[in-house]
Amino acid sequence: MENSFVVSSSPHIRDNANTRRIMLDVIIALLPASLAGVFFFGPRTLLVILVSILTCVLSEYFSRRLMKRSNTISDLSAVVTGLLLALNLPPTAPLWMVAIGAVVAVVVIKQLFGGLGQNFINPALGARVFLFISYAGHMTNWAIPGVDEVSSATPLALLKAEDTASIVFPSYKDLFLGNVGGCIGEVSAAALLLGGIYLVARRVIGPQIPLAYIGTLGLFTWVFGGSVLFNGDFLYHILSGGLILGAIYMATDYATSPMTIKGQIIMAIGCGLLTGIIRLFTNYPEGVSFAILIMNIMVPLIDRYTVPKSFGGGKAVE
């Protein structure tokens, strides 16, 4: 017995939190938005979601096997990526395109850079932009909610129309609940907020990134979004497009956001400004994906310049 003791460096106990549970919480938080998508866009939406998740999990399994690395599909991170990717696609997305996006997200963006936690941009967003550039037609084929499923413009695309006077804009209520055109996961602000509250309550994320991001964009569009200064319809901008989905679920991605609260707020403000600039001053109606991806790339830099002072490193007496 004498020689059989385990000798290790302290601490000798561990909390029961684990990666899998965190990923499961994100999946739970995304369920309301997924259900809202299926409800507004019909059962085919479910197929898009399933194909995306399945392809992500299979890509993770086979790519890691090929690279002779351990099997990590049980940590559920591939499921989260698959679900997020699907929520960022239009409900009309052809299934082959969904599968290509999933492979790009998991293999190219995540595994080739070292796997979980090592990717420098958000895999789902990276794949979405890849698809957007490669298959612009399919990626902007928006179905309007309802039985007819007529192709139509998204609320943000309406703002870019030549003659805005003759257009009937959706109401705040429709925007909030999700009765508008757009990606599967971005239509219902209410469902997204519900999941966001769950994530904050479970302490998976802090509220700082979503609040700073949405707040910055609101302020920016209020100041510059109207015909004169300080007259923009900021509520319309906040409730439209991928902002809430992006602010709660994508900008908060652990691997691609800064470590300190200060750094996270800097990143979120950057996201808000970039989204506002793209939405108001460029040809693109939507800017959330690009804004977050650009800020993702800035994260190492932000982390580098926001190393906190050690405890007691400031004033000696408070």
Binding site: H12, T19, I22, D75, S77, G115, G117, A255, T260
Partner: peptide
């Protein structure tokens, strides 16, 4: 016996 190390997810 302590659990195996996994990849850092940068959760903070």
């Amino acid at each position: 016996v302590l659990p195996q190390e996994q990849a850092c997810i940068r959760c903070g």
